[in-house]
């Protein structure tokens, strides 16, 4: 028995070393960099300057804007995605002809890469030759072209719209998996007791779906807090910095202004916020199980 355990450790060691190298090393490096002074190289001439980068960030209006944009984006899109995802999941959970096909169609937006999505929508939102303006003007709903991606705060709403369109189906898929674990007898028993659709949903579906909802909301929140491809490809963070997210700000600080240290601090702040939100979710999940 003991010998088998030891062999197990030996087998695991290479994998653990690789994980340590590709996961732990970059994290530690980022933390170390975030406390260092900006220099022309990230490998030589390290100078510890404590929290100076963090202080500078908190005094930078652009960083605060990026932080607010990210929180606003997350706070609006995740609940919307949950509601639409729930509706979709309910609809997909029924038996009807061609269910497989419909399920596939719903998954389509999620299967497309975000960058591709963003480019596609950028063309549709284009104010001069985009689909939306053409349709709305032809149908007489609009008389003037709307600058979907070039006006504040419209660009942010457009971006949220694309995000909801894309990820609601992901939400639906996770929730559908949860719905399928609820046995039919419960609904039968409920209907014997005189429940209607709404009360069945309220008292059977929701409580039993709770873990699935929490997990999917957790995943989406973490994702939304890290949003990068969408603003990068759809709006480039503009107009001004009205759609610049934390990830985009950190990327630009590092790769355009070549300030690895300041950018690392921004990433660490983002990391701490995501961590805090995740811990809160997990605590809620645990409480529900107890």
């Amino acid at each position: 028995m003991k010998q088998a355990n030891r062999a197990g450790v030996y087998f695991l060691t290479p994998a653990l070393l690789i994980i340590a190298f590709v996961l732990l090393f970059p994290i530690i490096q980022t933390i170390v960099l975030s406390f260092g002074k900006n220099s022309t190289s990230i490998f030589i001439g390290y100078e510890y300057i404590g929290l100076a980068n963090y202080r500078r960030l908190l005094a930078t209006p652009r960083f605060i804007t990026a932080l607010n944009n990210t929180l606003f984006f997350t706070a609006v899109t995740v609940p919307l995605e949950l509601c639409i995802g729930l509706l979709l999941a309910q609809a997909l959970n029924r038996r009807f002809r061609g269910k497989g096909l419909v399920r596939m169609a719903v998954l389509f937006p999620w299967a497309l890469p975000t960058a591709l999505n963003a480019l596609m929508w950028r063309w549709m939102f284009n104010s001069e030759f985009g689909l939306f303006n053409a349709m709305l003007i032809d149908s007489g709903l609009l008389t003037e072209r709307v600058n979907w991606l070039g006006a504040i705060p419209l660009a942010m709403y457009s971006m949220m719209f694309v995000s909801v369109w894309k990820t609601s189906s992901f939400m639906a898929l996770l929730l559908l998996a949860g719905l399928q674990t609820i046995p039919d007898d419960l609904y039968e028993a409920g209907s014997v007791d005189g429940s209607n659709r709404w009360t069945a949903f309220r008292h059977i579906t929701l409580p039993l779906l709770r873990p699935a909802i929490l997990v999917s909301v957790l995943l989406r929140t973490m994702d939304a807090m890290r949003t990068f491809e969408l603003p990068f490809n759809l709006t480039d963070g503009g107009p001004l910095t009205s759609t610049e997210t934390l990830s985009l700000y950190a990327y630009r600080t590092i790769f355009q202004y070549v300030n690895f240290n300041l950018g690392s601090s921004a990433i660490i702040i983002q990391f701490i916020i995501i961590m805090a939100i995740s811990l809160a979710y997990i605590a809620t999940l645990r409480r529900g199980q107890a």
């Binding site: 001069e128 600058n147 991606l149 070039g150």
Partner: peptide, 12 residues
Amino acid sequence: APESILTFRPND
């Protein structure tokens, strides 16, 4: 200049 000029890059 049209308002959309504010979203134009060279190729647009």
